[in-house]
């Protein structure tokens, strides 16, 4: 028997996991997502990464980015190193892909703000 706290939403349900291998039963979850989370934690724990990428824009030295879907927990620092290699020099916008299929995880690194587009427009107008 294992007890973990669900991190899917702020309810923070305490999940109780019984059984082994394929035969896991989950209790304590208020919704279906809790069960999915608990099973993943026992087999292949996944997380998201939210960070920033370097830019060549003077008024915005970094731009926020995240993974487009959950990635394996043990790949977090490897993916951080991949993002460190990038310098954004174009006025990217929200949702633009910076790195496709990062480290073969199937997840893209996407931009989460229009900041650079806005700054680019402001500079044009000046």
């Amino acid at each position: 028997m294992n007890e973990i706290v669900c991190i899917v939403c702020p309810n923070s349900c305490v999940l109780r996991i019984d059984g082994e291998g394929e035969n896991l039963t989950v209790s304590g979850n208020k919704c279906k997502r809790g069960e999915t989370f608990a099973k993943a934690e026992m087999t292949n724990p996944v997380r998201t990464i939210c960070t920033t990428a370097r830019t060549s824009f003077k008024d915005a030295p970094v731009v926020p980015v995240r993974v487009s879907k959950d990635i394996p927990k043990d790949k977090i620092f490897d993916i951080m190193r991949e993002i460190d290699k990038v310098t954004v020099s174009k006025p990217v916008k929200r949702g633009d892909v910076l790195i496709a299929d990062v480290l073969g995880t199937g997840a893209d690194i996407i931009v989460t703000s229009d900041l650079l587009t806005i700054i680019d427009k402001e500079n044009e107008n000046e």
Binding site: C9, P10, T48, C50, T51, T52, P64, R66, R94, T112, S113, L115
Partner: peptide, 18 residues
């Protein structure tokens, strides 16, 4: 810049800027 915003409203895990 972390995610978890909008779970109730948009049922998505958005970052603050998004």
């Amino acid at each position: 810049i972390h995610d978890g915003f909008g779970l109730v409203r948009f049922e998505e895990k958005l970052s603050g800027p998004e």
